[in-house]
Amino acid sequence: MKYFIYFVIFVCLLVAQISLLAFFPGNTRPDILLLGIIVLGMREGGIPAMITACVVGFVKDTFTTSFLGASMLGLVIAAFMAGNYKHIQVKLGTQSKLVLFSIIILVYNFIYYFLFELKAGMNIFDLLLNSVFPAVFYTLLFAGIAHFLIPHGLLGTKR
């Protein structure tokens, strides 16, 4: 039942990411699929997150002009990193969780945009400044909003 709910959530996230967020103004937009994968990894562990990352990454890639597999690779790595959170029994404060979230989002976006912009031949500085950092900021902002809107927070630990 739990995994069925996750399935439904990811279908909704996919639809939202592909159809609705694609019409956001500007070049960068929040990656809500990435947020879903991170939350799944932190809550349920690496294996379900990585399998989900493979599937949703593939579907997402089919709708972009990037390499097929670019999102998939980034999401799998993000899922693996988030899955490790479960193996470290640490009492983390809000700021520490934010740092962890930021690192995973940064890694994913770097991989994704590196492969995405590979075709255009953009240099690394432009890549970070124009694509990676705005995307990280935007996604984190969206994560913050979602965290405050969801009753128990994104990770179900909000009191």
């Binding site: 294996i47 998939m72 799998v76």
Partner: peptide, 24 residues
């Protein structure tokens, strides 16, 4: 307290990475 990552997880990670790179 670090709990070691299981072989299954490494294996799944490896498979997924290989799959992604193959697609690329």
């Amino acid at each position: 307290q670090f709990i070691s990552i299981t072989r299954r997880e490494y294996f799944t990670f490896l498979i997924c990475i290989v799959l992604s790179l193959s697609l690329i």
